[in-house]
Simulated assay, not measured.
Amino acid sequence: MTTFALSERRSQASDLEAALQEVERLRAENAQLRQAISSHATVDRAIGVLVARAGISPDDGFGILREVSQHLNIRLSVLAAEIVRHARGAGLPPRLLGELHATLTRRAETP
Rank of each mutant, 00 (worst) to 15 (best):
L79F: 05
A46L: 11
I37R: 13
Q70S: 12
N73C: 03
G61D: 10
A41R: 15
L50G: 02
Q70C: 02
G91W: 04
E82Y: 12
A52M: 04
V51F: 06
G91I: 04
A41G: 07
L76M: 15
R34V: 12
R95Y: 05
F62W: 13
V51D: 03
G89S: 14
L92T: 06
V68G: 00
D59C: 03
T42Y: 03
E82N: 14
P58C: 00
P94M: 08
A46Y: 10
L79A: 02
D59S: 14
S69I: 10
G63T: 06
E67W: 02
G48M: 02
A81T: 09
R53K: 06
I37K: 11
A80R: 05
R88V: 00
G91C: 06
S77I: 01
S39A: 15
E67C: 10
L92G: 07
H40Q: 15
A81G: 04
D59V: 08
G89F: 14
A46D: 08
A54M: 06
Q35M: 05
G63Q: 14
A31H: 08
P93Q: 09
G63D: 14
A90S: 14
A46C: 10
T42I: 07
S38P: 03
I83N: 01
L92R: 07
I64G: 00
D60A: 09
V68M: 00
R66P: 01
I83R: 01
P94Y: 15
